[in-house]
Simulated scan of single mutants.
Amino acid sequence: MQHKLTNSKVLKLALASAGALLFLAPSLGANALSNSQQDGSENRDSFLVAQGNCPTRRSTVDRTFETPNYYVTICSGDSRNSLGYYVGAAKDGSGGITVPLTRRSGDRYIAANGNTIYAVTPYELRVSQNGRTILNERILAASGDDTVSARGCRNRESTFVTAETASYVISICGGDLPGSYVGESKNGNGRIRLPLQSYGRDRFAAVNGDTRYVLTRNELRVTQNGQTILRETVRNWN
Rank of each mutant, 00 (worst) to 15 (best):
A119L: 13
V87M: 04
Y71S: 12
E137M: 05
I139W: 10
V87W: 05
A30V: 12
T228S: 11
S180C: 05
L177Q: 15
I172G: 02
L21Y: 10
H3F: 14
R235C: 12
L196S: 06
Y70C: 08
D107I: 10
N115Q: 10
R221T: 03
T223Y: 05
S46N: 15
R156C: 07
S198P: 03
T73Y: 04
G77V: 08
G29Q: 05
Q37F: 05
R126Y: 14
G179D: 14
S59T: 01
E232Y: 13
W237Q: 14
A14S: 05
T216F: 02
I192A: 07
L101N: 03
L22C: 06
P122M: 04
Q37M: 07
A206I: 00
L196H: 08
R193K: 09
A30R: 06
G209T: 02
D210N: 03
T56Y: 12
P68V: 12
L125N: 02
K4R: 15
R44K: 13
S8K: 15
G183M: 04
R201L: 09
Q37L: 09
E66R: 06
S34E: 15
T121L: 00
K12S: 13
T121S: 11
A32Q: 13
Q38R: 04
T228C: 05
E219D: 06
I134W: 05
E157H: 00
C54E: 01
I172L: 00
L196E: 00
T73A: 05
G188C: 04
